[in-house]
Write a protein that binds this DNA or RNA. Structure first.
Length: 287
DNA sequence: GCGACAG
DNA sequence: ATCTTGTCGC
């Protein structure tokens, strides 16, 4: 059965009040539990793709790679889950003022191998408002996902999921609309309170983020995500942690475990890092 | 009124 | 997010 909810699409023409109401519906339709067989081990990425010579092979070549012996295959011969990274870049107008259009990029990985790329450029209709990001970037993202042939088993979105004022961040919104398991990976904390200070933590460290007064829809103290130190330098400057939260059909614990498994030596998990690079390339090609 | 706020 | 060179460290 198809449980996607196209009726809950992030329509940018809604009023602020309507947007917030829609987000409460999204949160109500969301599942912050593991209802699938997605295991962190199954999606683990062993080696980072080299961006030195540009991005890995585009779709046509990558499809051929799928049939290469040992590439992205699991031991029992089953196909690994398809993980799709989603990211955005913005085009600026002639005067160099405000962003004019959004470039949404999606990159599909299977067993650490890139199997497909897609992107979509959409005019921006509303400004960025904290808490309403999905209404600015949601439509472009959905357009990019539509351009993808692959069937995502997991979406890795740039931004929050359950770590949100109404527990309905970008990752949750997109996940619910398509009824696909999703996680949110943010570079800064929107709301909620970490159990411990996140300062100068070693790679691999994590601490729960709990709902506070800024998240009235959740029972106070509910774990809505985690701060996760994906990378750290031995010396020199410190790296800030990531803020990982469930989008849809994933628990807070599994969300961090999945992201940890998807990291391959860089601060950002591979799907996000590759989508980021693809978005930049698509943007450059458009200029 | 003040503070605080993903990309 | 975006505007941008060099620079410090592995």
């Amino acid at each position: 059965m198809d449980l996607a909810r196209p009726d809950l699409r992030p329509d940018p023409s809604l009023s602020t009040a309507e947007m917030e109401t829609l987000q409460r519906e999204i949160a109500a339709a969301a599942t912050f539990e593991d209802d699938h067989a997605l295991s962190p081990a199954a999606v683990a990425v062993e080696e980072a793709a080299s961006l030195a010579d540009g991005l890995p092979p585009a779709r046509g070549d990558a499809v051929a790679n799928e049939t290469l012996p040992g590439t992205g295959d699991t031991e029992d011969g089953t196909d690994p889950p398809t993980v799709v990274g989603v990211d955005q870049a913005f085009l600026t107008d002639r005067e160099g003022d405000r962003p004019d259009a959004a470039v949404s990029a999606v990159v599909a990985l299977r067993g650490g191998t890139v199997v497909e790329y897609a992107s979509a450029t959409t005019p921006l209709s509303i400004p960025y408002v904290p808490g309403l990001l999905a209404f600015r970037e949601g439509e472009p993202i959905l357009a990019a996902l539509d351009a993808l042939d692959a069937d995502p088993d997991l979406l890795v979105c740039d931004g929050s999921g359950r770590i949100h004022f109404r527990e309905a961040g970008l990752a949750t919104h997109v996940g619910v609309l398509r009824d696909v398991p999703s996680v949110g990976v943010a570079k800064s904390l929107l709301c909620g309170e970490p159990d411990e200070s996140t300062d100068e933590r070693p790679a691999g460290w994590r601490t729960p983020i709990r709902a506070d007064d800024a998240v009235p829809t959740a029972e106070p103290g509910t774990v809505i995500g985690h701060a996760f130190q994906s990378r750290q330098y031995p010396n020199s400057k410190r790296v800030n942690p990531l803020y990982v939260s469930p989008g849809h059909r994933v628990s807070a614990e599994t969300a961090v475990d999945l992201v940890a498994a998807l990291c391959a030596g860089y601060k950002l998990p591979e799907p996000t890092r590759l989508a980021d690079a693809h978005a930049d390339r698509a943007k450059r090609d458009a200029e």
